[in-house]
Design a protein around this nucleic acid. Structure first.
Length: 586
RNA sequence: GGUCCCGUAGCUCAACUGGAUAGAGCACCUGCCUUCUAAGCAGGAUGUUGCAGGUUCGAGUCCUGCCGGGAUCGCCA
């Protein structure tokens, strides 16, 4: 559990006691009162802004109110010290034994430590990747894939019921191109010399097996078949093959979606029509003519009546087209139906993970979700900025035409799944990311992937040594034994610092889940690893601080409990990131 | 031109949804390295948070206007 919510209760109890004593009025809004660890540890263990937030509504000066609150907190008996500082902060200090004994919580929970009840009873649908099934995944897709997956893990850690979903764009014009490209490969498989792949078709080798499979299944029958019928066969086979390819790519990253949702099925089931009918009944659809974009009118612009959705009613800048000039749906129309379908399947929290190039699409989608669910669902769109691949400090130039674009597989095979995942998450999603091949595989402190893994490996190294050490032979170092160790000896500043750092993990998980920001987990782990390494290094100058002190069994056991718990927190956090903790590095 | 994102130490980036003296790593300076794993360690210096206003006890964070960079801009997905 999050121990800071424990202190929140204590502070809130203190405030109520002031209310019943008449010092504070009973109808005070306590919503803005925060109970947090102070940034500067010298300020104590816990701080609250209660006095500053409540001063004005209470009609008191912050420092005066703080004195009252601090007296009430002191009276609670939970703290060894309560101070008023600065403009009216109240700083609280807890006795060391409080922190020490909390280690047992970690040892009991193991890698389940940090699980929060925050999302209990709520479900959330996370849609990510959704790459067009026209070829293998490239690096551009990788970041969104890893981000979405880690976010899903994070929300699960916060007890949300999570659905990982992939929207298959299998209905648009690009799928027609895919089918034509596959048909060409089919003719090739039948022995025809197809020469150069014509401009506009997909030239990739990955379609060669699709052509062969079609030839094996159908012989030369497709050549004489009616075009519509043949197209359907080729399209279905090609999309199926591409999805297999993509699923394989995702598997290489350790990603598995529960739901693959087909856009094509939306068209066929008539759901688009019924969805738009629903909007039409609310007078949210009309036929009108849009203004050209200001300042940049396209050359071929001509005013045309279009079927439009009134997204401006919901905060969008212009109304958005639902039909193309040939009468078929735009991409937007089925997407509205799709999001309604998610809602009808019971999801009230929707998250979409998109690439940076779709940023201009966010407002209309949020508008549509609000309209079509009548405010029943909320949509959060997470935009992942571009990834720049670097080698030796130089950006790698990619060109689809020249066939030099780097696939997801290329990257995973070169640096490994764990390193790819960690690095993709070691940056806020809306900031661009440089991915340097050399740095990611480097074994040094400069590489956060390695630094965190190395901390865990060191921990297990010590545990192995402890199990093998003659001076300790016969001593029980199982978790249950460590949990009962006398932890009072963990009194060094670095030891207490590590404990306190570790105990912030549940709070960090909740905040990250709330904000939909998995990168916070990665940064937290780097800092926790840093705390651990610092303690390790301190043992060099101060041998009495080393983890294994053969002549002092109790101290050793306490320290083993400390690092065992640290290892669990690291493993737990890496689990959220989808990275395998390494226990031995040779 | 409209919209969205970004702008923080010389460089790459954080900053717990408004908290106290804005923090890490790299690079730089000084001193250490035959170990529970030096794949280094300890310490030091480093800032007008792009600019100008505003909101309030308090702003890197929220609001307005500029400057600069990126993405995008009726029928591609």
């Amino acid at each position: 559990m999050n121990i800071f919510s424990h202190f929140e209760e204590i502070v809130s109890d203190a405030l109520s006691s002031l209310q019943s004593a008449g010092t504070l009025s009973a109808d005070l809004d306590l919503a803005r009162v925060a109970v947090e660890p102070p940034r500067d540890p010298s300020h104590g263990d816990i701080a609250t802004n209660a006095a500053m937030v409540l001063a004005k509504p209470a009609g008191m000066k912050p420092r005066d109110l703080a004195t009252h609150v601090s007296a009430a907190l002191e009276a609670s008996g939970h703290f060894t010290k309560v101070d008023v500082a600065g403009p009216g902060f109240i700083n609280m200090t807890v006795r060391d034994s409080f922190w020490q004994t909390r280690l047992a919580d970690v040892l009991a929970a193991r890698t389940a430590y940090g699980v929060s009840e925050m999302g209990k009873g709520q479900n959330v649908n996370v849609e990510y990747v959704s790459a067009n099934p026209t070829g293998p995944m490239h690096v551009g897709h990788t970041r969104g894939a890893v981000f979405g997956d880690a976010l899903a893990n994070l929300l699960e850690k916060a007890s949300f019921d999570v659905c990982r979903e992939y929207y298959i764009n299998d209905a648009g014009g690009q799928i027609g191109v895919l089918a034509d490209s596959a048909f060409l490969r089919y003719r090739e498989a039948l022995g025809e010399d197809i020469g150069e792949i014509p401009e506009g078709l997909y030239p990739g080798d990955y379609l060669v097996p699709v052509g062969r499979a079609l030839a094996a299944d159908h012989g030369d029958k497709l050549l004489t078949m009616a075009k519509a019928e043949r197209n359907e066969i080729v399209r279905a086979a090609a999309v199926e093959a591409m999805m297999d390819l993509i699923r394989g790519d995702l598997d290489a990253l350790g990603i598995e979606h529960e739901v693959f949702f087909s856009e094509r099925e939306l068209h066929q089931s008539g759901k688009i029509d019924t969805t738009l009918k629903q909007l039409d009944n609310k007078d949210l659809i009309y036929v009108g003519v849009l203004e050209p974009p200001k300042g940049k009118t396209p050359d071929d612009w001509e005013p045309k009546p279009q079927t439009l959705f009134r997204s401006t009613n919901f905060g969008d800048d212009v109304d958005r087209a639902l039909k193309k000039s040939d009468g078929s749906w735009t991409y937007f129309a089925p997407d509205i139906a799709y999001h309604l379908d998610k809602y009808q399947r019971g999801y009230t929290h929707l998250i979409d993970v998109w690439g940076a190039d779709h940023g201009g699409y966010v407002k209309r989608m949020k508008s549509a979700v609000e309209a079509v669910t009548e405010g029943g669902a909320d949509l959060d769109v997470k935009i992942c900025q571009l990834v720049r691949l670097m080698r030796n400090g130089e950006p790698i130039k990619m060109s689809k035409r020249a066939g030099t674009f780097v696939t997801l597989r290329d990257v995973v095979e070169e640096v490994g799944r764990d390193a790819v995942r960690f690095m993709m998450l070691y940056r806020k999603n809306d900031a661009p990311l440089d991915f340097d091949f050399a740095k990611v595989t480097e074994q040094s402190k400069d590489n956060p992937v390695f630094y965190v893994q190395y901390a865990n490996a060191r921990i297990h190294s010590v545990l192995r040594n402890a199990a093998a050490d003659d001076g300790l032979s016969g001593v029980d170092i199982t978790d249950s034994a460590l949990a009962t160790a006398d932890l009072g000896s963990l009194s060094d500043e670095a030891e207490l610092g590590l404990i306190k750092h570790m105990l912030q993990y549940p709070r960090m998980i909740e905040a990250a889940a709330e904000a939909h920001e998995p990168h916070r987990v990665a940064f937290y782990l780097f800092e926790l690893a840093s705390s651990f390494h610092a303690l390790w290094n301190k043992g060099k100058d101060h041998p009495e601080l080393r983890f294994i002190v053969p002549e002092q069994r109790d101290v050793t056991l306490a320290r083993l409990a400390l690092i065992r718990a640290t290892g669990y927190v690291i493993a737990s956090g890496l689990g959220v990131l989808g990275v395998e903790p390494i226990e031995e590095m040779r």
